[in-house]
Amino acid sequence: MITSVELFNGGMVAYFLAFLFYTIYTFSKSSWASKLATGFAWLGVVIQGAGFIVRGMEKAKVNMVSDWTAFYKYAPFTNMYESLMLFGWTAVLIYLLFEWKYKNKAFGMFVMPLALIGELSTQILGFNSEAQPLVPALQSNWLLFHVVTTFIGYAAAAVSAGIAYAYFVKRDDTTAKDWAVIFITTWFIFFFIIYSAYRENFVYYLGISAVVAALFCGFLYLIKKVGIAKLFPSVETMEQIMYQSVAVGFVFLTIGIILGAVWAKYAWGGYWSWDPKETWSLITWLVYAAYLHARYIKGLRGKPLAYFTIVGFLSVIFTYYGVNLIIPGLHSYAQ
């Protein structure tokens, strides 16, 4: 029988092919490349979707549950490997929905590698890909719903931040100061992703992530110089998509936090314990709430909007990766 890891890897191959065809499409505008790109991206989503189902059954097995209908209880989102797979999968899915809605494929060549890097990082960073049994605290009916809604929220936030970076590439008046901000924020993001895997040699990984961030910025700069940015939707449309994915992210984060509270009520005895992860999810929620209000009173457009979008995503990254590094809390089994 085919294993979930094989399916996840198969999905990654499909994403890679999609990336190639998105790139070909971007430069050649050929319609068959465009169709193949979208086709492979969807194929990857389907394969990995099947991967999650197989994974759920594998987990039910290691948890010694024979009743397969209970597999949602053993939803495969309980360690770093599984959650990063979910992250990549949701990001591609959300991208495809935006692609379908806005009929613009310019971002495919950026989203695919991002999802791919996220998923591949499980192998580079050495997260265990084995299906593991669940500790008692994670055996809950709420697990699936809490994690899925939260991750849609995270992925939407990632999409919004991706658009925000592309937005600076698109704009003609991007200054050195903007580039500095792009560098520092991506440095922060890469650092927390890498460091959360090793948790030692702080300075060393700070250096490594600086190099990765510099490469990323170089890549963005190259895109700008080569003129690919011309293919992006207009500045206004990008602002619109940025805001819309933040709105989607906000709604799902809210639902995720609330479902987490319901779960906490049954597992820990109270809907809110000020556990560091809970607190950081609240901080993220507050940042996005401020964002939506700032947009509402119309002050927030243009670059400040993009900055705020990135700050919101930093908060998400910290909630996802950073929290367990500072204080071990009730969520620290997520490693």
Partner: peptide
């Protein structure tokens, strides 16, 4: 609404303190 934005961000920033210092 400015007050709302100020309060939301102030709450966000001050909440960080409690995740750095054990409570």
């Amino acid at each position: 609404v400015k007050l709302a934005i100020f309060l939301l961000l102030t709450l966000a920033i001050t909440s960080i303190v409690g995740t750095i210092i054990e409570q």
